[in-house]
Design a protein around this nucleic acid. Structure first.
Lengths: 150, 150
DNA sequence: ACCCTTATTGAGATTGAGTCTCATGAATAT
DNA sequence: ATATTCATGAGACTCAATCTCAATAAGGGT
């Protein structure tokens, strides 16, 4: 759980085994700050020559999520994007519908209002999903970026 | 688009045909304020004796959404919940993870902060997704409600 | 170093929501 | 009434994700 603890030890604490497959998935996710999905990770590992299976990638992602090392991000595409939680604190996302760019934002005011609303309705808040969709105005760059990504 | 206009006329304005299937789907969605999914609607109609197909239900829902009569609600279950937009203004949702209850909330303060954040990042906001997940504290009722639903 | 137990893996089948195909049928304009 | 063209139905298909189960390998015990 401690983020800088050896991955091997993190697994051992739970009686789980350390395998090169789990290490490879974790290394691949850590290596990059884009919000890739499970299949992106799978393809990267295959291309790097690892004989790993898709099922193992999905299973390992769930292990990483349950250990708080990775967060799944559902932006309504029908697949989960991934985000490692190494150096980041909680944040929500701004998503450009034109180019797909994802920008993180934090708003303590909104967080406070969320708590207020929850308790006003007798709810014990556990988590939230907050996404702002729009178009980023830096158009030339926006389209350039789009052309680089699907 | 005008919400109280005859459905028949709404369709005609777009050169679309009025069929009993489309009317039946719209009537079924209007009839109830729960957040049911496409398959719930399909099953209701089948049980009521209508010889309608699943594909038509899905297609009609898309027609209703594009005409602003219905809103799809994705609360991360891998299927879309539906909400008719007859008497409601914009709102977001509080969702109880124990009983599945969905409560609507509005916060002009949060809406304002969202606009502020978007423009601060050079984004033209088009829409947002804001969901608060937690547990409603009215436990006896909470479990009662759960027992009534799946 | 070698077992032995048992968690983990891989390949492919399966699931489930939603979409697509295309021949048939029905709604509207004339 | 007829023609035109949109809509429907049944089932095939998609796609992300999960499941199955025999084979494999991690790592504690000796």
């Amino acid at each position: 759980m401690t983020i800088n603890q050896e991955f091997r030890d993190v697994l051992r604490e739970e009686g789980m085994r350390h395998t090169w497959q789990r290490q490879a998935v974790w290394d691949e996710i850590k290596s990059n700050d884009e919000h890739r999905d499970a299949d992106d990770i799978f393809i990267c590992l295959k291309q790097a020559g690892y004989p790993i299976s898709r099922a193992t990638v999905y299973r390992t992602i769930d292990v990483l999520v349950s250990h708080g090392l990775v967060r799944k991000l559902d932006i309504g595409e029908g697949r989960m994007r991934l985000e490692h939680k190494l150096d980041s604190h909680h944040h929500d996302h701004l998503i450009c519908e034109n180019c797909g760019r994802i920008i993180e934002f934090i708003s303590p005011e909104i967080e406070a209002l969320q708590s207020k609303i929850s308790s006003a309705h007798g709810f014990a808040l556990t988590h939230h999903v907050h996404q702002l969709f729009g178009r980023c105005l830096s158009y030339p760059d926006c389209d350039y970026y789009r052309s680089q990504n699907r």
